[in-house]
Structures are given as C-alpha cells and as structure tokens.
Computed example of a mutant assay.
Amino acid sequence: MGDQFDVSLEDADLLDEVELTTSLIIAASASETPLSQAQIDELLGVKPHRDKRPGADS
C-alpha cells in the first residue's frame, strides 16, 4: 500500500499567482516609496484600459 500523503499536486494558475505575488513583494521591498498603480500594473502585466465607447477620448 502506498503512502496516502505522498501526492504530487501542481496547479499552474496557483504557481503563476505565487510568482506574481513574489514579484510584487520584491519590488515593494526594494522601493523606498509605495509602488504606484502604474508600477503595479506593469509588474502584473496589466495593459492600460482603453475605453472604446464613442466620444470617450474627449
């Protein structure tokens, strides 16, 4: 009978989240000031929202 606690679990989405969180922690620790929203978005790979509604550019 195998060891019931010897299981291999891997969740790619969870690993990605851990990597992003780690990147944020490192960047925040290295920064002398709080990270701006733009810096956080860049670290997370968030692209700026572009409003596609007519007249939204003005």
Score class of each variant (00 low, 15 high):
15 L>F: 00
35 L>Y: 03
51 D>Y: 02
29 S>I: 04
22 T>W: 04
37 Q>N: 10
35 L>V: 09
38 A>C: 03
53 R>T: 14
27 A>W: 00
26 I>K: 15
52 K>C: 07
53 R>P: 08
45 G>M: 02
20 L>Y: 02
53 R>N: 14
41 D>P: 00
49 H>V: 05
45 G>H: 01
16 D>G: 01
37 Q>A: 12
37 Q>I: 14
41 D>W: 01
25 I>Y: 06
41 D>S: 11
24 L>R: 04
35 L>E: 01
32 E>Y: 08
50 R>W: 06
52 K>Y: 12
14 L>P: 07
45 G>T: 01
45 G>R: 02
34 P>Y: 01
42 E>Y: 04
30 A>I: 05
26 I>F: 09
24 L>T: 02
28 A>W: 00
19 E>N: 11
35 L>K: 01
53 R>S: 15
41 D>E: 14
27 A>Q: 07
24 L>I: 11
16 D>R: 09
19 E>T: 12
20 L>K: 15
39 Q>S: 12
29 S>E: 14
31 S>C: 07
30 A>E: 15
42 E>N: 09
42 E>L: 08
47 K>A: 14
22 T>K: 13
34 P>T: 07
41 D>M: 03
28 A>I: 03
14 L>I: 14
47 K>N: 08
25 I>R: 13
32 E>T: 13
18 V>D: 00
17 E>I: 04
43 L>D: 03
23 S>T: 13
18 V>H: 08
19 E>W: 10
42 E>C: 02
30 A>W: 03
22 T>V: 08
47 K>H: 07
23 S>R: 15
19 E>V: 10
43 L>M: 07
16 D>M: 00
37 Q>G: 09
43 L>S: 06
27 A>K: 05
49 H>F: 15
22 T>A: 12
52 K>D: 14
50 R>M: 12
17 E>M: 11
35 L>F: 07
16 D>C: 01
21 T>G: 09
28 A>N: 07
25 I>H: 09
53 R>I: 11
48 P>T: 02
44 L>A: 07
26 I>G: 01
51 D>V: 04
14 L>F: 14
52 K>V: 11
34 P>N: 05
35 L>D: 08
38 A>G: 05
53 R>F: 07
35 L>H: 03
42 E>H: 09
18 V>E: 10
50 R>Y: 09
21 T>D: 03
27 A>C: 04
26 I>E: 14
42 E>S: 12
23 S>Q: 14
18 V>N: 06
25 I>V: 15
51 D>R: 06
29 S>D: 13
49 H>L: 01
15 L>M: 12
16 D>W: 02
43 L>N: 00
23 S>G: 14
44 L>P: 00
39 Q>A: 14
23 S>H: 13
40 I>R: 08
15 L>Y: 02
45 G>P: 01
17 E>A: 11
51 D>W: 01
28 A>M: 06
27 A>D: 08
14 L>S: 10
35 L>P: 02
36 S>M: 01
48 P>N: 05
46 V>L: 09
46 V>H: 06
24 L>F: 02
46 V>M: 06
41 D>C: 07
26 I>S: 11
21 T>C: 04
18 V>T: 09
50 R>A: 13
34 P>L: 10
52 K>L: 13
30 A>R: 15
19 E>H: 12
20 L>A: 12
19 E>I: 12
37 Q>K: 11
48 P>I: 05
22 T>H: 11
